[in-house]
Design a protein around this nucleic acid. Sequence first.
RNA 1: GCGCCCUUAGCUCAACUGGAUAGAGUAUCUGACUUCGGAUCAGGCGGUUGGGGGUUCGAAUCCCUCAGGGCGCACCA
Length: 535
Amino acid sequence: MLVRMAAPDVDYVLERPRNPEHGDLATNVAMQLAPHLKRKPREIAQELVDAFEFPESFVSNVEIAGPGFINFKFGSHALLDVLVNICELGCDYGRADVGKGKSVNVEFVSANPTGPLHVGHGRGAALGDAVASLLEAMGHDVTREFYVNDAGLQVERLGLSLWARIQQLRGGEAEVPEGGYHGEYLIELAKRVIEHEGSEFADLPQEVGVGRCREIAVEDQRKEQTKDLADFRVKFDCVFSERELYAGDEITASLEALNKRGLTYESDGALWLRTSEWGDTKDRVLRKSDGTFTYFLPDIAYHRNKAGRHFDRAIDVWGADHHGYISRMRAALKGLGLEDSFFDVILVQLVKVMRDGSEVKFSKRTGDFVTLRALFEETGVDAARYFFLTRRGDAQFVFDVDLAKKQSDENPVYYVQYAHTRMAGIFRKAEVDPTQLDLEGADLSLLTEEDERALMKHLGLYPEMLVKAADTLEPYRVTIYLDELARLVNGWYHRHRVIGSPADLERARMILARAAQIVLSNGLNLLGVTAPERM
RNA sequence: GCGCCCUUAGCUCAACUGGAUAGAGUAUCUGACUUCGGAUCAGGCGGUUGGGGGUUCGAAUCCCUCAGGGCGCACCA
């Protein structure tokens, strides 16, 4: 407050120092102030410290260090309160209400309904789901949405491909078309179609048959994808079909809206959108000279539709190969009068798959690829999800199948889960109900060991870590936090006994163990990973 | 050719968005339980943060430049 009055534009931070010798909280305010006041940082720091009085139980020590840092050390109360707080809140510990009243649409995976989901979709699924959960934890009203491109050229080719397979089964000469889908799964589907519809299905007029094939194939693939995702523990609140946009005339309505605002023009027989006026590198075509729309227009209409559904925010998870698309979409939405903050994209780098030490090339067209289902059936859902989330989305990611298949301690998720089962094991062994611990009757000030202090400090950091992860849309922060927490928990567990300590110390440590268990469990659950009692 | 992202220990990644001695895991080496689960713990080895310049009290972080990698740059989806 004083600082603000002296120099309102000074940018200082209050942070948790990396080095424990620098206390629990530190500020660089004196150094930031120095150039403004033209005085030595340490002098300013001393003056600031003298000007304040701190209650002993919350701040036990203040010192000036280095070039002018002011370091605070917490009193016992601040830390011990954290434990009580965690145990009382339970699974609500870490939740906040900063996003209360705001609705967010998180759209992810959105795979074309033309084939099975592959590992790249898995990464998007894990990430999108975790981001959605993070925002929920912040109190947002979150809708998980899946967009189905069921109106374009790709599904047309899908229909043709299935039709060709059916003809082949009947001994016909048909070929899977150029750019069609060659995967085994369509042959299987073709067999089922003949079984269900009878062999005369193949004798339908080409046009009718292909149309039916398209319907059947899309429905079948949607069903498969939904099942894969459900088994991967990802559930969507809303599946949005591209056809709905056409059916509701939203495509033409969007076009008119853009026209009305004077954002379009005709050139070379095509209709262009002036995206370059909003930060794109060039203008983009909405309607080709042959009269058909580019894919850009339905995408605009779709996002306009999201705004129309009164979402305050739309977050898309995209493959990194679409990153060139961001600026034009942002430009289009800006042109429609939407706030910058409405639209965000999380980019996910495509996943490279290594097997037997070499890269597996995969292509949906040729049917040679690693499916998401194959992956999580080998590694387990917990390991696969956690694995995907330990990396930042925009970093390249090599998924070593052989390594992930090893159900060993090389999978980082086991380390965290193991810490949780150990805490659970304490209560199981002591035959104590962890939800019925006596918080008032315990003397927490007995928790004086250095690693107990460190553990409590880290437990107290959980809520602000969540805020940051939600703010930056970066779930990997949670995995890093959990890994660190598990390290502290395992170290503490190894060095100090809970059961068998003097009765009052045992009571206090039970509460610490309970708090650790709660935070481990909350963090894992947030990521869609189980927190097992036993392993 | 232009634009965006990336380059940190042998390998996989951190570093609280400009802070104090750049940290974990893994690999490798050495140690540790007669007890709550050893899927653990403690320690050693390992670094010119891709190179060079700049900005300031202070740079892995910001700016310029060079090198290497990825992805975009369609009247494709």
